[in-house]
Simulated scan of single mutants.
Amino acid sequence: MRVVIVTESFPPDLNGVAHCALQTARHLAARGHDPLVVAPATAAGPEADAGAPCPVVRVPSLPLPGYPQVRVALPSRRIAQALVAHRAELVHLAGPFVLGVRGMAAAVRHRVPAVAVYQTDLAGYARTYMGAGEGTAWRRLRSVHAAADRTLAPSSAARRDLEAHGVPRVRLWPRGVDSVRFRPERRDPALRARLAPGGELLVGYVGRLAPEKQVELLARTCALDGVRVVVVGDGPSETPLRAALPGAIFLGRRTGDELARLFASLDVFVHTGPYETFCQTVQEAMASGVPVVAPAAGGPLDLVRHGGTGLLVPPGDADAVRDAVWSLAADPALRAAYGSAGRAAVAGRTWEAVGDQLLEHYAEVLHARAAVAA
């Protein structure tokens, strides 16, 4: 099958859209299919794609003002040209909003079936950054997803949101996790000794440091006796967060096996953002055998079994985050039980298994198109 993946982000970018697009391309290539990626150009230049699992077409882009880690694609004919040159049988739109809208238009023009993957709560971002614009964001999302043959939502909450805003033909497609890389055996006593020389409980956040992530909700957790907060990631909010989280250790961006060691070396993982359509870092923490505290909103509702693999707290409630962490700090046996249950819940959710589910969605879309044509 010849598939063109039109994605708003792709490595070397580090975010959920980029990682999922990369895993999709890898799985298609591994299963003998022929993928091509269309993505915004990055500052890294052509060498960034040297290790990609398939050819990558880069579209001119500009950094988002105030948030240079995010690049926005400029108008380009390269998308339509790529579809034609690749003889695409299906278009996969990853997190469509800017580049994906043009990819959808090209798919319609050339009568190529399209699967749109919803990944980012752009309406929530509009509310966070502008205090308005949710309706505009949903109208744009609805227009592109309604034109797709199928929309894939990563969680039950995301599916409900899409359907409530009039998006048709929505199905569930979760995300995979590398349960070989992320596993409890990566726990590193030497790393723990460096981060918590006094034997403190290590509480970690991993992710972008941006307003919508609400990492400042960890401020009261920082004040707990015997607790050391570790923040992994970078972004535009790093400077104010350093002031807001006294005593926290900021490690910057970490990837690969180093990130896996950090996850496994935590005692509790906390995610604070309420706008996650899935929340991959929660799943990676669970694969690492670490109990999770997360907001009872969005993707974590599917991932975290409250009182079984971790604790769900009201979104935006710093006191609830602190109290959940404190309850786990006082009970090592409960932490161990939650961690083991979390690992068991996600260990079989590999990218290979999830990738095969995606291929089933593709097959159903192509069959439906063929039936209409017949």
Rank of each mutant, 00 (worst) to 15 (best):
V304M: 06
R159Y: 06
A296I: 11
T42R: 02
V354P: 05
Q69C: 10
A341I: 11
V231F: 00
R335P: 00
G204E: 01
V180N: 13
V229H: 12
G235L: 14
I5Q: 07
P11D: 04
Q23W: 14
F182G: 00
A336F: 11
S155I: 12
Y338G: 04
M104L: 04
T151G: 01
V230H: 15
A80Q: 02
G256R: 13
L14I: 13
P184W: 07
V3N: 06
S237A: 15
Q23G: 11
V17E: 01
P314C: 02
W351I: 15
A223I: 11
R26H: 13
V203H: 02
H86Y: 03
H27P: 07
P189E: 09
A43W: 13
G100M: 04
A44M: 09
E163C: 03
S179M: 06
G103S: 05
L262K: 14
S9T: 10
V59Q: 09
G339R: 06
A21N: 08
V117Q: 10
R194E: 11
P46N: 02
T7S: 14
A336K: 13
A344G: 08
A52N: 00
E134S: 11
A137F: 01
L83M: 14
D319C: 06
Q357R: 12
L251R: 07
R142A: 13
P197E: 10
A52K: 04
D234P: 09
R186S: 07
S156V: 10
D34G: 04
V98R: 03
V304D: 01
R109N: 08
R369Y: 12
P96S: 09
D149N: 08
R87L: 09
L224G: 10
A44E: 10
V232G: 05
A43G: 02
L64A: 07
P35V: 01
P46K: 12
R175E: 02
